[in-house]
Structures are given as structure tokens and as C-alpha cells.
Design a binder for these strands. Structure first.
Length: 296
DNA sequence: TTCCAGGAGAGAG
DNA sequence: CTCTCTCATGGA
């Protein structure tokens, strides 16, 4: 089917799909291809119009509803960015990547992806996830583009640790296999997780081996829609130590400062800072905080 | 060759 | 509680 969404405000497809929160989108010729809801999606943006093609052919209304949710289009981004735009440093990040949104991705795939992300780089994470999907997922084809669903927990549990290791997952293989078993046997309920508050969901996720504070926060932010989650990876740690706190800081200190400084949408602030720092660190611009124009 | 990547677990102190 | 070491892998 084809879906045209017009008058999309404050949305940038490229920044949203290439900001390190999803590992599954591929740019081919003039469009992004990916897998959502076990269907291939082809998405293009022309100014304020989204052109979406999919192999999915049933129930257009519910598909459209899910698409809005997935792309985070139901939120008032301008309001959010205005709230976190409290100094000249993040102002540059916001200005440069205006329209970047936090996705609401499928939960199990997000759990698995960020278990695999630890002590790893984005390019290699993408390769590993592609390999796992190719070997254990279901093959899909649309307009000549071939991709694979991410395998469900039971499939990975049945495959075994060694087969997961063979996908290049390294020491994380046992973590992923363990998580797959926990979900498959009902010890961890994905449906229950979706209903929990942020703190409760994070705590529940951290019961999984291989899921610590940072990975749990990624899952909360990139799948469960908890905008107050602040994943602290090496980049975010560097930003807060060099730009904001100007000293070595433990994760909890950064959490406390950031929550107070940026407020309830700190997760969105984090995404802009992360993407900005990756492309143009600009660490030692010491005058940015004295130029602070909104923060009291 | 060594270092690094959207870290976390285990052990020592 | 905090600090340190280790865990596979591939690209720079």
C-alpha cells in the first residue's frame, strides 16, 4: 500500500533514522528501507510530506496509527525542544538537527539490539543484527529490496548460544540467549513492561544479564517512550564532563545534574547532544554556558 | 601493534 | 560502597 502523510511538522527523516537509536534502516537510491511490524517499509521525505510504501495490505487505519507512534509524530517536538534549549551549546545541536525524533521501536528487537551494543560500535552492531536477522528471521522482499524480520525470542532461544555466537556477537552471545529464554518462557513479560512506569521498567530490565543502567535506559527511551531516561555512554559522559560539569563525574552525578538542568525531556536533549558530539564535538568552546539565555 | 566502540559482571579492597 | 580487570570483534 501507499500512504502519504502531509503537513508533517518538525520532522527530519534522515536525522531520525541515522542517529544511532535504530540499527536497521538502509538508504537505497532515494529512500530508506527497513522492517517494521514484520513488513518492509520504504520511506521518503519531500519537505513536509512523507511518502510511505509497504508490502502490508490489511487495515490501513491501524497501520497508519502504528506508523505515527513509531515515528513519534504524535508529540509536539517544538515544545519539547524549546523546553530543553537552555544554553548555547545545545542550541547549536538543536539548530543543526532540528526535526530529529526519538523512535518508539519494537520492544524485543530493541532489548536484543542494545544488549549487543555494549562495548561495541554502531557499524558493527548493524552488521551483527543483520546477520542474526538473515540467519534466524523471516525473509521479506518488496520492490526488489530484501530484508529479514528480527527473530522472536523463542527462535533465538531454540537456536542456542553457539549459533548466536557464530553471528559475531562475541561474549554477548550468552547475554542475548539468556534474555531470549527469559522472554520466551514468560519470566519477563514484554506486555507487562510496556505498562510500567519508567523507574519500574528500568529496574525490571536490569534483572537481565548484560543489561545495566545504560542499556536499560536505551530500551526505555528508544522503545518504551520514557523521555526522562538518560542513557550515559562514553559520548554522553564526555559531553557532560567536558562541557557542563567541567570535571570527572560519576554516572549518578551526571543523572542528577542533567535531570535538574534539562528537565523532564532530558532524553530528547541527550539525543541531540549525542548526535552533535559524534559529528562535531566542539568540546572546548568555553563560552557556551556564559551565553546561556534561558536557564535561570 | 595498540586503541576504541551507544558497557556490564565479577572480584578485590 | 568504589576501583579494576576482563570479556570478542573488527576497523582505524
Amino acid at each position: 500500500m501507499e500512504i502519504i502523510i502531509k503537513n508533517v511538522t518538525d520532522f527530519n527523516l534522515k536525522y531520525t533514522l541515522e542517529s544511532g537509536q535504530s540499527f536497521r534502516w538502509n538508504w537505497v537510491d532515494d529512500a530508506y528501507f527497513g522492517v517494521v511490524q514484520r513488513q518492509i517499509l520504504k520511506i521518503q521525505q519531500k519537505n513536509d510530506t512523507l511518502i510511505i510504501h509497504s508490502s502490508y495490505e490489511q487495515d490501513k487505519t491501524s497501520f497508519l496509527t502504528h506508523l505515527h507512534h513509531y515515528l513519534d509524530l504524535h508529540r509536539d517536538l517544538a515544545n519539547i525542544l524549546n523546553a530543553v534549549n537552555v544554553d548555547a551549546y545545545i542550541a547549536r545541536a538543536i539548530d543543526m538537527f532540528w526535526g530529529m525524533r526519538l523512535l518508539n521501536q519494537e520492544l524485543w528487537e530493541t532489548i536484543a539490539s542494545f544488549i549487543l551494543s555494549q562495548n561495541n560500535n554502531i557499524a558493527r552492531i548493524r552488521n551483527i543484527i543483520r546477520t542474526i536477522s538473515q540467519r534466524f528471521g523471516q525473509k521479506l522482499e518488496y520492490e526488489g529490496y530484501v530484508d529479514y524480520t528480527f527473530p522472536d525470542p523463542k527462535t533465538l532461544a531454540d537456536a542456542g548460544r553457539d549459533k548466536i555466537f557464530d553471528c559475531g556477537t562475541g561474549y554477548r552471545a550468552s547475554y542475548l540467549w539468556n534474555a531470549a529464554n527469559n522472554v520466551a518462557n514468560g519470566e519477563l513479560s514484554l506486555d507487562a513492561l510496556k505498562l510500567m512506569e519508567y523507574g519500574c521498567a528500568k529496574q525490571e530490565l536490569m534483572k537481565l544479564k548484560g543489561v545495566g543502567e545504560k542499556v536499560a535506559d536505551c530500551i526505555c527511551l528508544f522503545s518504551l517512550g520514557h523521555q526522562q531516561a538518560l542513557p550515559i555512554d562514553v559520548w554522553i559522559k564526555r559531553i557532560f564532563e567536558r562541557v557542563y560539569l567541567r570535571k570527572r563525574a560519576k554516572p549518578q552525578e551526571i543523572q542528577d545534574f542533567a535531570k535538574n538542568y534539562f528537565g523532564e525531556f532530558v532524553g530528547y536533549a541527550q539525543q541531540y547532544l549525542f548526535h552533535y558530539a559524534q559529528q562535531q564535538p566542539d568540546w572546548d568552546n568555553g563560552d557556551h554556558l556564559t551565553l546561556s539565555f534561558k536557564h535561570k
